[in-house]
Simulated assay, not measured.
Amino acid sequence: MKTVSVIALAGMALAAGPTMAATMIFTGTAKGAQGETLYQETHTATGSCIDGLFQPQSNQIDYRWPDRDEVFARKALEYPGSKLRPVVDFRQPEFSESLSIRYPESDVLVIDWQMPKGETRTFDVPYSSDVVVDAGFDNLVRKHWSQLIQGQSVEFRFLGPTRGEHYAFVLEPTESAEVGADYVFQIRPTGMVLSFLVDPIVLGYDENGALTDYLGLTNIRENADANYTAHIRYSVDNWPECELTP
């Protein structure tokens, strides 16, 4: 019986595939419309290599002004469930702002937003499997990598955390004079009203599936009433010992 148990366990391990810890470190430099450097961000994503693919478990993001080494804002992402919907903890002390997103139930997420002007808002938002939260868009791209690079599009719903609602969006290949990446995609709203109010986000990726460019509205405040719109260019400082895309 002991021999059979060992063989059975070995078979289960082989079926599950090899797993090992992995870390991906990448940095981004955000620039404004005139080419001025607005801020820099450092991402430390930890996870595992499972069956040859990197699976993120957390990402710590530190934001710094270009002329100072001090961290002025932080975001922590955790992926205990879906890779499309991380747990979010964002803080920008200069404006006394914080934002958290949690999932206390399987179909309801909770947003707690401490606004720059002192007011606090809480939203209970029902959600389904096609809802994407925050940086989950990056994993959405990799999940549908094959069809995107073949010219196909992906419909999904994107959470607007400060509005307490999610909206219909599409992820699709595009062209951009400003983003010269191996692959260029955009995220744009499909609803008529929202499409007039929200500009598309343009994304650049290299052939390995790493994000190289983000062009659009950011989560970093320019002032108490508006966030920066920026072109963020990314470079990888440490690659995981496995692939990012199938």
Rank of each mutant, 00 (worst) to 15 (best):
T245W: 06
N208E: 14
D134T: 04
Y205M: 03
T122L: 08
G191Y: 10
P161W: 01
R233I: 07
E175I: 02
Q92N: 05
S96M: 09
I25W: 01
T245D: 05
P246R: 14
H43E: 04
E165Y: 11
T174R: 02
V236F: 01
S82N: 02
G216A: 00
Y183K: 04
R188K: 15
G35I: 06
I101S: 02
M115E: 13
K75A: 11
P200H: 00
L38M: 12
P80H: 05
K75R: 15
W65S: 12
Q40G: 14
D213I: 00
M115S: 15
M1V: 15
T44C: 13
A73L: 04
T120L: 06
L9W: 08
V108C: 06
T212Q: 01
W65T: 09
P126C: 06
E207P: 02
G47D: 10
L84F: 01
A13M: 14
E70S: 08
R157E: 03
M1N: 15
T229V: 08
C49S: 07
D67M: 12
L14A: 09
K2D: 08
L197P: 00
A76N: 10
A76T: 14
M115Q: 15
S96V: 07
T122S: 12
G47M: 14
D199V: 01
T174C: 03
L14C: 10
K143V: 15
I111M: 09
Y214V: 00
G216P: 00
G35P: 07
P173H: 01
L9F: 09
P56C: 04
L14V: 14
W239P: 01
I232C: 00
T23A: 12
T46F: 06
G17H: 09
E222P: 01
A224T: 14
E207S: 14
G17L: 11
G204A: 03
D138A: 10
T27L: 11
L53V: 15
G151R: 08
A76E: 13
Y39H: 03
T190D: 07
P104M: 11
Y205E: 02
Y234L: 00
I50P: 02
V184I: 08
T174H: 01
Q57A: 11
G32Y: 01
E119R: 12
F137R: 03
P104W: 06
F95Y: 15
G191N: 11
S146E: 08
V198W: 06
P86E: 04
V4N: 07
A15W: 13
L197E: 07
